[in-house]
């Protein structure tokens, strides 16, 4: 090197080059058919789905939706004394946590010390929740039930909207936000039990189990055993369905149509129809990714 090997300042050749430092004998708005947009790429990283794949993964939405409905139904039944709180604890909360934890211990092959520290955490957590439940119990005494129900509805909708379904980089998803929304809804509902703070306590525990532990449990098993997705979906769906039996018929049918049909079968169909129109444009103007 050592010398500048630039072409003469006016390019006498007839071919146009994509260089700005050469003064070329072409107009500024000259379009070179050969090089114009030659670096444009379409659908570089686009992933196309098959119908059954889409149906399978739409189950994740059904699971979360069912979880939310189960939670609300439990509240409704507790309020109207359709289920006794002792039965709920004995036949739902304790077995759910027990089976969940046992399977975790078996699969991850936990050591004794790990189990001990887990048990310690559980006891601390339960005692703490038990301690604050009287406060939560009277928290919203002065607020009307309508307000509480409206708030709860919004918060649970937020939970479903912002739930991190596939732990990908979807911009809208936020684990923290969706969990906090659910917890807010739970505190709202739990504070409506004027009778006893034990109900409040159990509902809080239930919210933690359903909105914090259960999603993590599902996520772990679905990542490592993809076959468990339909199992979870169907289980959640049917538990939800059975619990709805006491409700009005039209709600029952509405849920069946909405969840079972639209989310799981119609939406994937629309996705498949639309994905042929998928067109992402890439080129040298894209922000470069730092290669590692």
């Amino acid at each position: 090197m050592g010398k500048i090997d630039v072409k003469p300042s006016v390019n006498r050749q007839n071919s146009w080059t994509k260089k700005l430092y050469i003064k070329q004998s072409y107009d500024d708005n000259y379009v070179d058919e050969k090089t114009f947009l030659e670096l444009k790429r379409i659908n570089v990283n686009a992933r196309l789905y098959t119908y059954w794949e889409a149906v399978l993964y739409s189950g994740l939405i059904v699971q979360q939706l069912s979880t939310v409905i189960i939670f609300v139904l439990i509240y409704v039944y507790l309020r109207s004394d359709l289920i006794k709180i002792e039965n709920l604890v004995l036949f739902f909360v304790v077995p759910l946590v027990g089976i969940g934890y046992l399977s975790k211990v078996i699969v991850l092959k936990h050591k004794c010390s790990q189990i001990q520290s887990d048990l310690g955490n559980i006891i601390k957590f339960v005692l703490f929740t038990y301690g604050i439940s009287p406060i939560v119990n009277s928290l919203t005494e002065s607020i009307s039930s309508d307000t509480i129900h409206a708030l709860t509805t919004f918060m649970l909708i937020f939970n479903i909207l912002f739930y991190d379904y596939d732990s990908s980089e979807a911009t809208i998803a936020s684990k923290t936000f969706s969990f906090n929304a659910a917890l807010f809804a739970c505190v709202c509902l739990a504070s409506r039990f004027e009778k006893s703070s034990f109900h409040t306590f159990i509902l809080l525990i239930l919210a933690f189990v359903l909105f914090a532990l259960f999603p993590e449990y599902r996520r772990y098993s679905e990542e490592h055993y993809p076959h468990s997705i339909p199992i979870f979906t169907i289980t959640c769906f049917f538990i939800c369905l059975i619990m709805m039996i006491n409700l009005k018929l039209w709600l029952y049918i509405f849920y069946l149509c909405l969840v079972c049909f639209i989310i799981s079968f119609v939406c994937p169909l629309i996705l498949i129809k639309l994905q042929s129109k998928k067109k992402t444009i890439h080129g040298p103007w894209d922000e470069a990714l730092i290669q590692t």
Binding site: D28, F36, I281, G283, W285
Partner: peptide, 30 residues
């Protein structure tokens, strides 16, 4: 009436971005 871009890459980008029909409507002036 006319668009000016500061480089050829910028022109291609603007052409696609603004959905301009005729690329001759864009000049490159660095």
């Amino acid at each position: 009436d006319h668009v000016i871009c500061v480089s050829n890459t910028c022109r291609e980008n603007t052409f696609l971005r603004a959905n301009i029909q005729d690329p001759r409507k864009i000049s490159v002036i660095p």
